[in-house]
Each structure stands twice: as structure tokens, then as C-alpha cells.
Nucleic acid binder design. Structure first.
Length: 438
RNA sequence: GCGCCUAUCGUCUAUCGGUUAGGACACAAGGUUUUCAUCCUUGGAAGCGGGGUUCGACUCCCCGUAGGCGCGCCA
């Protein structure tokens, strides 16, 4: 029998990382077994399941390349079928009508009253519960709407799902679901429950703990493969020491018995590290294209920058980028005079004594340079420093701050070369003047 | 309250009865470098507690403890 799994989210407008991780595990499992990965949209809550919410879900799936193998199933279209099954259960005496709580008549499914219920979870192992600790439960509300448990199980039957891989929070529901499968005369699928993703306090990771939705990570500039790889490693390990894995590697290595059953904390620092690793592997063009988008979004005009020059800048930035959102703030000085080189910055980052003279000397040197390439600049400034009995380092810092406003970034001379003579000298003069005015 | 589940460095994890308990992130120190990042070297850092079982337990069992989940006419 070939594997058929499904990801069955209810569209709420946001896709939580815990949720998408379940999708990733399902996808990995399906691909590993050459099975089918299906999407079922549980859109029975008409209030929240707007077309925008559904589109957001689809976009997230596409962004992470969680490609599914059949047309998505929309649960709301099968209400009649769910109700028909409820009637069938009623006819068989496996369910009954009741006016529970006086809210009107609903349909309730009978759970066993004695014995022990148990199943083997592919992640958690054997799980058992006494029948007396379970209760009958509503499958059709008094307003006629099928309840989650019914719809979920009936759809899984109809979609011929073989393995249900979902969040830990469904462990208890599984007893209900298995009984429902049996009542329908269908052998229950295999179950695997994934541990939750939690915050520093051990509580379920939520919006309040930081970025919690796929869209937010995309926004911040994490690559889809980073999120995929990182989430796959939360609760699963390949068994060797590898952590940076391709999809094919993960697919080949993925098995449910290598999944952990305890909750995992979300570590943003490690995610950032991983993203840096993957950003460095990107072709320059890809990085440059995304950089353009980010700068545009930040209203930094780059229309005056020639493509070749832009690529040089991108090449300087790429090796030191962890995620895209941090980039615009780190490279303004390449594109505009509106970078943080004001009185406050000067005061904070430059020593008043001697710096103005130093910058003047450098400026005078650079104006007269025969060419403006970084090797030549390096040699010339170094010589100037030595001739004054100083180290190159003593010159580099003030120059860097004067032309960029910040204390970190690409190699200084590569930076000056890209900036060009006019801009460099103009900025040196300007800052020297500011220092003297104090 | 009742039920179910879980428990290895700060974090993610390896270990499936015998290891100096390994790796990664983070952190610290050093090296390379003009800063940052990268890179290299080094370091600190873990089996929740108590009982068993066993020649031998992180590993198996029990009891605690702590945490999570569930106990809706939500999904």
C-alpha cells in the first residue's frame, strides 16, 4: 500500500511555524516513501476562512516549495457527506441524539464504556487510556454543523490517508478518531504525533515570543530553505552530525523513528546562523536581486548606481549578511549622503584630538592619487600612516567612520574604491570640518 | 481535580546496557585580518531526585518532582 499523508490546516490568515513544521514532516515522509502529500483546507469556520486567508496558506506552501500531489480538498464542500455519515452512525446505533445542555438537539458519538483503548504512535510509542476516562462526544452540533472530529475522520477516510502526522496536542483526540474509523468500518491509519515548539518558558511558542508565522520569517529575510532545514531539525535528527542538509538529503534520511517526542525550543540565533550559511552559498545575482528589493522597500534610491557597481557592493555585503532585513541599515552610505554621519555620530565615534588633521591629510593624499583601486589606496594610506609613526589601524577606523558613519563593514579600501574619489574626499572634508567646529 | 505525555551542556541534538557522554548554535579566550563577518585553535558547559533490575545503567522498571497537552455543540 502506498503512503498517502495530508497537511490539514484551518486557514486563519497566518501560518504558524509549528503548523508548517507538521507540513514539512508530512512532506518529508511522503517523499521518503515515494508516497503522496496532500493538502486539505479545513475551512469550516467561515468567519476566518476568507479567500485571503486561504491564499496566505497557499503562498506559504509555495514559498517553502511544499508541493502537493493532488488538488487541495476544501472541507467545507463535504458537509453533506459528513452529515450523511452521522446519519449512518445514528442508524447503526453507534451515535444518538441528545439535547445536551439544553442548546437543542445534537448528535453524539458513543465511546466504549469499558476496557482499555490503545494505539501505537510512530513517534511516542504505545499510548493507552482506560475507556472510563473517555467520554461520548458531539459530532454534529445542534445547528446542524459537523464537528471537527467527524469531518476530519470522514475526510481522512475518503482521501485514503495512511499516516497521520500532526501536532502533539492531538494525542488525546486520537482515541476518539480511532473509534470513529472503526465505526465506519475502516482500519485506522497509523499515527505519529510531533512535539510542540515552545518558548523559553516551555509554553507553546506564540506570536508574543517573536516571529511565529511563516510570513514574518519571509519578511525578515530568511530563505525558505533555511526555515525548512531548521524546522526539520526541531524534533528530528539525521543520526549523524550533519545539520546543513539539502532537501534530497533530508528526504533520504527522514524516518519517524528518528523523531523526538519531547518539546523543542525555538532558537532564533541558530536560525540566523544557518541563514548566514545559506546566504553565503547564494549566487551573487540572486543576492543582488533581493538586495535591490530590500533597498527599494526602504526607499533607498539606487537608480543612479550602475549594475556592475551594484554587484560589487552586493559582493561586499553578501558574506556578512545573516538575514536581509538587517542589510539596508548597514549599507546606506553606498547610495546616499543621508547616512548616519551627523554631529552626534561624530562625537560618539571619533576622538576629537588629531582626527581632523588626520582626515585632512588622508583627503589630500587621495585627491592626488593616480588611480583609485583598493590595492593602491591600501599601500598609500599605509605609507602615510608609517611616515607619521602610526599604524594602519589607527588610520582605518577614523576613515571608515567618516565615510560610512558606522564601525563595521567591508574592507575599508574596497569600500573606498566603490565609493569613488569624489564621494570619499567630500565626506572626509565634511567630517574634518565638523570636528573643527567643535 | 482527573487523564495522557515528556525529562542529556544555556539552546537544538547524538547515544538505542559497557563512550574520556559526541556534534552544532550561543558564550569565553587566542590566532589571521584595516573594522565587522568569515576562517583556524582552545576552553567552560549536561544525563531532574530517589529506589530498583543488572557484572554494568543516560539508556530498562517503579515512585517522586517539574513541565507540556487534553478534559468545548473550537479546530
Amino acid at each position: 500500500m502506498s503512503v498517502r499523508v495530508r497537511f490539514a490546516p484551518s486557514p486563519t490568515g497566518n501560518v504558524h511555524i509549528g503548523n508548517i513544521r507538521a507540513a514539512i514532516f508530512n512532506w518529508l515522509f511522503a517523499r521518503h516513501h515515494n508516497g503522496r502529500f496532500l493538502l486539505r483546507v479545513e475551512d469550516t469556520d467561515r468567519e476566518r476562512s476568507t479567500s485571503e486567508a486561504i491564499q496566505t496558506l497557499l503562498d506559504c506552501m509555495a514559498w517553502l516549495d511544499l508541493n502537493f500531489d493532488e488538488e487541495p480538498v476544501y472541507q467545507s464542500q463535504y458537509t453533506a457527506r459528513h452529515l450523511q455519515v452521522a446519519q449512518q452512525l445514528l442508524d447503526q446505533g453507534l451515535a444518538y441524539r441528545d439535547n445536551k445542555g439544553g442548546a437543542g438537539e445534537c448528535i453524539i458519538f458513543k465511546m466504549p464504556k469499558e476496557g482499555t483503548l490503545e494505539y501505537t504512535d510512530l513517534v511516542k510509542g504505545r499510548i493507552r487510556k482506560k475507556a472510563e476516562d473517555t467520554q461520548d462526544f458531539v459530532i454534529v452540533r445542534s445547528d446542524g454543523a459537523p464537528v471537527f472530529h467527524l469531518a476530519n475522520v470522514v475526510d481522512d477516510v475518503d482521501m485514503k490517508i495512511t499516516h497521520i502526522i500532526r501536532g502533539d496536542d492531538h494525542v488525546e483526540n486520537t482515541f476518539k478518531h480511532i473509534q470513529l474509523f472503526r465505526a465506519l468500518g475502516v482500519e485506522p491509519p497509523a499515527y505519529a504525533h510531533l512535539p510542540m515548539i515552545v518558548n523559553n518558558q516551555g509554553k507553546p511558542y506564540s506570536k508574543r515570543d517573536g516571529a511565529a508565522f511563516v510570513g514574518e520569517f519571509k519578511e525578515q529575510g530568511f530563505l525558505p530553505h533555511t526555515l525548512f532545514n531548521f524546522l526539520a531539525l526541531l524534533g528530528w535528527a539525521p543520526g549523524d552530525d550533519r545539520e546543513l542538509l539539502t532537501r534530497d538529503e533530508m528526504t533520504a534520511l527522514f524516518t519517524l523513528d528518528r523523531c523526538k517526542s519531547s518539546a523543542a525550543r525555538f532558537d532564533l540565533k541558530k536560525l540566523a546562523w544557518m541563514n548566514g550559511e545559506y546566504i553565503r552559498q547564494l549566487p551573487l545575482d540572486t543576492f543582488a536581486a533581493e538586495l535591490r528589493n530590500r533597498l527599494a522597500a526602504d526607499a533607498i534610491d539606487i537608480s543612479h548606481v550602475a549594475p556592475d557597481r551594484f554587484n560589487v557592493i552586493a559582493a561586499l555585503l553578501q558574506p556578512r549578511t545573516k538575514y536581509y532585513a538587517e542589510v539596508p541599515g548597514n549599507c546606506r552610505y553606498f547610495f546616499t549622503e543621508d547616512y548616519p554621519m551627523n554631529e552626534a555620530a561624530v562625537e560618539k565615534r571619533l576622538k576629537p584630538e588629531g582626527t581632523a588633521d588626520l582626515l585632512d591629510a588622508v583627503e589630500k593624499l587621495l585627491v592626488a592619487m593616480p588611480d583609485f583601486c583598493h590595492e593602491t589606496l591600501h599601500a598609500a594610506v599605509e605609507q602615510l600612516a608609517l611616515s607619521r609613526g602610526a599604524t594602519l589601524g589607527a588610520f582605518v577606523h577614523p576613515i571608515r567612520v567618516a565615510v560610512s558613519g558606522i564601525t563595521e563593514g567591508p574592507g575599508l579600501f574596497e569600500l573606498l574604491e566603490v565609493l569613488g574619489r569624489d564621494t570619499t574626499c567630500g565626506r572626509l572634508k565634511r567630517v574634518a570640518t565638523m570636528l573643527r567646529a567643535k
